[in-house]
Amino acid sequence: MIDELCIIGHPSRLGGADTELDHQIYCWQAMGIEVHICPTGSLDDNLKAMEMGKRGCVYHQANDWPSLDGMHCISFCNGQFLKHVELIKRYALTTTFVNCMSWNFDKEVEAQSKGLIDFHLYQTQHSFEKVSPKLKSLGTYRPLYFVPYFHAEDFPYIDNRLQDKFRFGRISRDDGDKFNSRQLWIYESMTAPVAKEGLILGWGPKVEKKFGRCPESYINTLPPGSISQRAFYAQCEAIIMSTDTFENLPRVGFEAMASGSILIVDNRGGWKLEVEDGVTGWLCKDEREFVYKASRCAFENEERSRMRFAALKKIQNAWGLQPAMDSWAQVFAQWESVDS
Rank of each mutant, 00 (worst) to 15 (best):
I8H: 01
H10Y: 05
V85D: 04
I200N: 00
S75T: 05
V35C: 08
S189C: 07
C57F: 15
E276R: 02
P215V: 12
F119Q: 02
I171G: 00
Q334N: 02
C73P: 07
Y145V: 09
C27W: 00
L68Q: 14
C100S: 07
G32S: 07
F97C: 04
C27M: 15
P323K: 04
E51H: 14
K285A: 06
Q125D: 14
K48A: 02
E289S: 15
Q123T: 10
E274I: 08
R304N: 14
V131I: 15
Y59N: 00
A256H: 11
M50D: 14
E276G: 06
G260E: 10
G176E: 09
G198L: 10
S295T: 12
I262T: 15
N267Q: 12
S261H: 09
C73Q: 02
C284Y: 02
Q61A: 12
I239E: 01
A152D: 13
S137Q: 01
L116Y: 02
N267C: 06
N99T: 05
S127Q: 02
N78C: 08
W103N: 11
T96D: 14
G56A: 08
C100Q: 09
A49P: 04
F246T: 02
L116A: 12
V265H: 14
C27Y: 01
G115M: 04
E197S: 10
G269Q: 06
M31K: 00
K293I: 12
E34T: 08
T40Y: 11
N46A: 04
F150Q: 02
E34S: 15
A62W: 04
H23V: 10
E274W: 00
K178C: 05
S226Q: 08
A333Y: 00
M307T: 06
A333N: 01
K314F: 15
H84I: 09
L162E: 06
W282Q: 06
A333W: 08
F211N: 02
C297M: 13
G9E: 07
D266T: 11
E86D: 01
L5H: 01
F179I: 04
E197V: 03
G281L: 03
H10C: 07
L14K: 05
F166T: 09
L263G: 06
E276A: 09
G278M: 07
V35R: 04
P215H: 11
A195D: 01
I33E: 05
A310Q: 07
R304Y: 08
D44L: 15
Y59E: 15
Q61L: 03
G204Q: 07
H84V: 07
E208V: 13
L144P: 05
H151G: 14
G202T: 15
H84P: 00
Y26L: 14
V291S: 15
T124V: 06
N317F: 14
T95A: 13
R306Q: 01
F254C: 05
